[in-house]
Amino acid sequence: MAQRSLRPEMRRAAKEAPVGDAIMSARDLSVHYGAFQAVRDVNLSFYENRITALIGPSGCGKSTVLRCMNRMNDLIPIARVSGEVLYHNHNIYGPNIDPVEVRRRIGMVFQKPNPFPKSIYDNVAWGAKINGYRGSMDDLVERSLTQAALWNEVKDKLKDSGLSLSGGQQQRLCIARAIAIQPDVILMDEPASALDPISTLKIEDLMQELTRNYTIVIVTHNMQQAARSSDFTAYFSVGEDRAGYLVEYGPTHEVFTNPKDPKTEDYITGRVG
């Protein structure tokens, strides 16, 4: 796969195309954990086939916001979400929306690689199977693993356990698993933070490749990663009341070269956080 040509410098030109409609947006999104307000009034849009990075210091609520995007916060009993999250202008917190349907359209890759303790093949095929995939499963598995830049490494051992792979390979397997059900949006929660630099680079290259078909939202602690791989950046901070809020949001090169808010500048220049 011609990954090198997709390094960020080369990519800038490719992304000159005008930004399309927002595929998802948060409207006045607030999250409480019990009595504690974790996130306050976030307004944010994610654009089709673009990568949006959420950055900010620990505890600023960026992972919480990410988990709101496919209702993974529903799994935390004390979490309460207010405001709206629009997906193609449908509020995914609306009364008639089943979170299962939401998650089938908005996939997720987690911080720590979490393949199922099943074969590599079954890891990829399971999601498609339960969602009623009608086509050839072998083709889908091959296609998904190829898109996740893992096929060449595992094509001879598809029956091996997913847990037998290295950390970086496991994370790409998780990405293959996520794209096998062909969602619209892939949420990535610090997908490379548990990986070594080389695996990290592979994941970043892979993200660029995936933007052809998918919209990606990534939470990262690594500002270079945000700078070199994202199209938009949202900077979150923690307020006096310990609630996270959105400080600044815009195209990545603007946020990094010409931040409007002094807090953003302090953070990206390494003075805080």
Binding site: G107, N114, C174, R177, I181
Partner: peptide, 10 residues
């Protein structure tokens, strides 16, 4: 994380 992985696949 196993439950989350499965639920996130719909």
């Amino acid at each position: 994380s196993q439950r989350q992985a499965a639920l996130a696949l719909g």
